[in-house]
Design a protein around this nucleic acid. Structure first.
Lengths: 210, 210
DNA sequence: GTCTATACGTCGATAGAC
DNA sequence: GTCTATCGACGTATAGAC
């Protein structure tokens, strides 16, 4: 079950009733596809409900039938774009967990507007106590850190990563460094995203490998 | 000359004319002081020109005599809050450059709303080609990285930091890790900001110290 | 220089008709 | 499911009082 199948409680179509469920899912996907295009072209500020609706040929109120709010729509757009990024790159996985993040960052930065959307949503997540973005990023960070921690522990046991640092701390650092560097790179591409991330990777090499 | 003395070209008071310059600066400071309070209480979304103006007892249009736009005002608020943070902490400087950033992050996170304001402005900086935030963060990142690079080179020569990594890369990584971790910590304080940043610090220790 | 008053266009969100 | 109509609030701009 993908995120596309998630509907809000009050407008979720009944499954099995003349295909209305699949239709709702398809409509959601159409909206998200157009929305990411609008976002890429005009940025976060230019991506109002009215503009997305215009691109679809409907009124802006129609969009709120599929998403509770603009913010929730933007979160869905991010998930959608991220999933597409991964589909297009069903390639090889690097040996070490660190390098998985390095490659993900490189891919991220190639999708126009994706980092910008990410930053916009992170800022929104730090807003009021309850927002659509807040729960999304809280669980997202949690999941990514946990996955990464496990992979790092495995790498440490295999002697691929130095074991004198806590895997949990390193996991949080990798996520932070990756996120932060993508922003710095967008503002100043001359810093060299790949080289810098590889430097981080080098810091994690076990003493024997040096 | 501090950032408070910077005025936009068309409304800059003439220096030496019956103290109007100092008055303008004082008024700016009043506005910024109230604005940071509003921001702390209500967040970025709740910090409209009208609300700041209300807190000052003036109309919202009055604020635009001191700042060209809301975004420029918010940038000034961030600079102001950051300067205050540094004033209150004219304390000791750690031996290594890395640990300067560790302490700065700890202080940042203690000022309510500061990280949120930072995130908001970063998101704005990634927006259109020309925004008040964009030039601010571009030069800010540049300056911080340059200062940090020099300090790191010094530490490397002194044998305090391992010298098998490029100081330039490490500088960008430190900024990225610090920024990224502050966000993760705000969403999940249990990750332990200080411990995690110290883990990064440990990765930079020279082989001899291990 | 400082500020008020006012207006313009846009926004997210909601209510109710079809 | 989608529409229109409408609401309150927003950033910005301008004209003019003092």
């Amino acid at each position: 079950m993908s995120y596309l199948d998630r509907m809000t409680s009050d407008d979720a179509p009944v499954i099995g009733r003349s295909g209305s469920y699949a239709k709702g899912v398809a409509r959601r996907r159409e909206i998200l596809d157009r929305a990411i295009e609008v976002f890429t072209e005009r940025g976060a500020d230019g991506t109002s409900l009215r503009r997305i609706a215009q691109a679809l040929g409907v009124s802006h109120a129609a969009l709120l039938h599929y998403f509770d709010s603009r913010e929730q729509l933007l979160v869905a757009v991010y998930e959608h774009a991220e999933a597409r990024r991964d589909e297009e790159n069903h390639g090889h996985r690097p040996e070490r967990a660190v390098d998985v993040m390095v490659e993900a960052a490189m891919l991220n930065v190639e999708v126009p507007g994706l980092v910008q959307l990410y930053s916009t949503l992170v800022a929104a997540a730090l807003e009021a106590d309850s927002s659509a973005s807040k729960s999304f990023f809280t669980t997202r960070f949690e999941n990514v850190r946990e996955q990464l921690t496990n992979d790092l522990r495995r790498d440490q046991e295999a002697g691929l990563v130095r074991d004198d640092v806590d895997a949990k701390d390193v996991a949080a650092l990798i996520v932070a460094a990756s996120d932060g560097l993508q922003i710095q790179w967008l503002l100043e591409p001359s810093i060299g995203l790949q080289e810098t991330l590889r430097a981080f990777s080098a810091l994690l090499a076990p003493p024997a490998a040096r």
